[in-house]
Simulated scan of single mutants.
Amino acid sequence: MDALVIGKPNVGKSLFVLNFASYLGLREIRLDVMSSDDRVSVRRVSLEDAKRKLVSHTAHKTLLPRRVDLVLPNGKNPKHLSIIDTVGISEGIHHVADVRQAMASTLARISSADMVLHLVDVSRLGHKSIEAPGPVDEEIARYAKLLGPYAILANKVDKPGAADGVSQLREQFRGIPVIPISALTRRGFREVKALIFRYMG
């Protein structure tokens, strides 16, 4: 099963992917980096090295999709899951051509994903000076929910004001599963795992 992780820049996508792998008991991962011409470079890295190299506060640190293959324990029949980390999707047209191409590639992958996990930073939503999720998040939700399993992961619930952000998100996206999580502290990961198991059969 392929689960696509999508969202705006700096919402915590890469940290979620790597800490979710750690939550499942992995210390080393197979990291597949997919180029625009469908070539894949494969390497094995420790989770600690991956976090040092891949997690950043810099917008658009991830330009090429990165697939992490996971094995989920399930008695004698373990389940296989690939989580695909993607470039942040910005509002409007980005001024850098490589970023525009990466965003277009990410959006195209929604249609072929078995599941879409849409991260939103709810710590920002709790502040009155910050607007609600904009057109990009709304378009992702409108499109992805029509194609298959889809959920919004309300990230950064460990931050002040996040509870108000979660409420705002649930009000704005009624009828869509919203799971409060912290990619940093792993809060909510049990619920994410349960959701994934539900659709893996």
Rank of each mutant, 00 (worst) to 15 (best):
A3N: 02
P160Q: 13
Q168L: 13
H95G: 00
L64P: 12
G148R: 13
K145N: 03
S56C: 02
P180D: 01
I84L: 06
L195G: 01
L47E: 12
D158T: 08
S36W: 03
L117I: 03
R66N: 09
D49Q: 12
V178G: 11
V5C: 02
E171G: 11
I140D: 11
R67S: 09
S105I: 04
A104P: 11
D2Q: 08
K61L: 04
E139G: 04
Y143T: 11
S182Y: 13
E139W: 08
R170K: 14
A154Y: 03
R198L: 08
Y143N: 12
A113Q: 15
N10C: 08
Y199H: 13
A59V: 07
L54S: 06
A162I: 10
R109K: 09
V87F: 00
V116H: 04
R142N: 12
H127C: 08
A108G: 10
S36D: 07
P65S: 01
M1N: 09
I29D: 06
D164G: 12
L15N: 15
V71D: 09
D2W: 01
Y143W: 04
P149C: 08
A3P: 03
A154D: 05
D49F: 08
V120I: 14
G134E: 15
I181W: 01
P177V: 02
Y199M: 02
P160N: 10
K79Y: 10
A141R: 12
R190Q: 11
P133N: 03
P180G: 09
R27Q: 14
V71K: 14
S182G: 09
G175V: 04
F197N: 15
L125T: 05
K156P: 00
R67W: 01
K8P: 07
L119K: 05
E191H: 11
A50T: 11
S182N: 13
A151Y: 06
L146M: 10
V122S: 13
V45H: 05
R124H: 03
I152L: 09
S112Y: 12
H94T: 10
L153A: 10
N19D: 13
Y23G: 03
D164N: 14
A113G: 15
H60R: 07
M103T: 15
I176N: 12
R186T: 09
P9E: 04
R142G: 10
S182Q: 14
P135C: 06
S41A: 00
G175C: 03
D32F: 00
V17S: 14
R124T: 04
L107I: 10
D37L: 00
A154P: 08
I84K: 09
V87A: 11
A151D: 09
G188M: 00
K53L: 10
L15Y: 11
M1W: 00
L81T: 02
P65C: 03
N10V: 10
A108C: 07
D2N: 04
N77F: 05
E131Y: 07
H118G: 01
S105R: 14
L24Y: 02
E139C: 02
